[in-house]
Design a protein around this nucleic acid. Structure first.
Length: 230
DNA sequence: ATTTGATCATTT
DNA sequence: AAATGATCAAAT
């Protein structure tokens, strides 16, 4: 029996990646952090991305903030997703930053959103704030690609949102736009600004935005896999 | 300033 | 109670 240890290099195949992810199921974040020698924060208030970094470490992802897929050689993106006791998502899922300028010629097929979501390794983690961070357990992983219907839903929302961005309506977009994909601020704070297109086609400064998967979408894909009720 | 990793906390 | 808008940290 091999001792449980983090992968020190990127997995050679999707099968190896999935196998390692499956071995982590059932362990608590405290156990995995201790085995990896990673300090555990008291909570996630000042370390929102800590769980993601811990799982990246265990799965041999190129940790850090490089603008690539987590497993570039495999074409796989890693996403941890906080779930409640019924297996339903507690939070939306960040996909990528939305390009607010230079969008001429971009289509759904060539979009960052579609590329990021082409193949995703989802790792559910208990996220109820009543559970101490160290005691939260890792769930069974799910390797996923959008099916036809999911791709269609994503495309329709993406097209609506991108149309508004291109037409200078970015500041009229709220999180209520989109059925499964929404656009929300993605910034250090409300003072961080980036360039966008204004209503008259002029350059403006606005909050950086990101695309997020809504909980109905991620909840359904988890449910479909684990045969849970939504 | 922007990318990565996301969750927080106020509003509805 | 749920969702929206705001925010935190590290790396580049």
């Amino acid at each position: 029996m091999l001792p449980l240890a983090p992968l020190t290099s990127p997995p050679a195949s999707e099968a190896v990646l999935l196998q390692q992810a499956q071995r982590l199921a059932g362990y608590s974040l405290g156990e995995l952090a201790a085995l990896a020698g990673l300090p555990i924060p008291p909570d996630l208030r000042r370390d929102k991305g800590w769980t993601g970094v811990l799982l990246e470490l265990w799965l041999g992802a190129s940790a850090g903030s490089k603008p690539e897929q987590d497993f570039a050689a495999l074409g796989v993106e890693l996403k941890t997703i906080p779930i409640d006791s019924a297996g339903r998502p507690l939070e939306t899922t960040f996909v990528c930053v939305a390009p607010l300028t230079g969008n001429t010629g971009i289509t759904w097929e060539s979009s960052h959103v579609r590329h990021k979501l082409k193949r995703v390794l989802w790792i559910p983690v208990e996220g109820d704030r009543a559970i101490p961070l160290a005691d939260r357990r890792v769930g069974a992983p799910l390797i996923w690609s959008p099916d036809e219907e999911e791709d269609r839903q994503l495309r329709l929302d993406w097209e609506e949102l991108m149309d508004m961005i291109v037409l200078g309506q970015v500041e009229r977009i709220t999180a209520r736009h989109g059925e499964v994909l929404q656009l929300r601020p993605k910034a250090a704070n409300s003072k961080a600004l980036t360039e966008a297109i204004g209503a008259r086609g002029e350059p403006i400064l606005t909050l950086p935005r990101g695309f997020y998967l809504k909980k109905n979408f991620t909840g359904a894909l988890l449910a479909r896999h684990f045969l849970l009720n939504t």
